[in-house]
Amino acid sequence: MMSIILAIAIGAAFGAVLDRIGASNPTVINKMLNLTDLRLAKAIMLAIGLGSVLMFTGQMIGLVDVGHMSVKAAYAGVFLGGLLLGGGWAMAGYCPGTGVVAAASGRKDALFFVAGGLLGAAAYMVTYPMWKASGLLDPIWGGKVTLGVVPGSGYDGVTNLPGDILGIVLGLAFIAIAFALPERLLGQPSGQAHPAE
């Protein structure tokens, strides 16, 4: 029961934040992806960096249970799937999480995205044996690995560096990049005020 309460509290907070930073607005997403407005990218980099610093610092002082980490396997299909997801993300302006939030916030096109997503997930369920047989799902570089060795995590590292300290350093680097990135890379500033949304 406790886990359901946490699911509701953290899930609702996540959905609300995605709405407020504009991540569930396809216009904001594609202005980030076509490099004309990088403010959302700056927010995401800051979030990854802050999350990393807090988590690894918490682990080092014993506040965060290392066992809560969950590292996904590396395999060739991760890159291929990433390419597909990226293409669809730009086409639709939605990814799985922001799509469901957008649909709930009254965007009708997001309902079509979610419907297409359910069909796409079903298509994968049916074609999974083919991918499995292709070898593209076989682990590479050790599979479930982190960049350094995180003490107590049970995951191997691709380097022998201390994974928690490396995580904090990389987290700080993400935060630094968030601040260093310009708000715009391509095109000329339009000089117009940013829309209220």
């Binding site: 990854i48 590292v71 590396a74 299909g77 997801l85 669809g88 990814c95 799985p96 796409g120 995580g167």
Partner: peptide, 30 residues
């Protein structure tokens, strides 16, 4: 787009949340 995104996410084993944000935050190579 939804079809491609979810097909790709399942092939990759995660999406923008699980792979990119949660993954890079944990220094996961994947």
């Amino acid at each position: 787009g939804g079809f491609i995104v979810l097909y790709g996410a399942r092939l990759a084993g995660g999406c923008t949340s699980g792979h990119m944000m949660s993954g890079m935050m944990q220094t996961a190579v994947s």
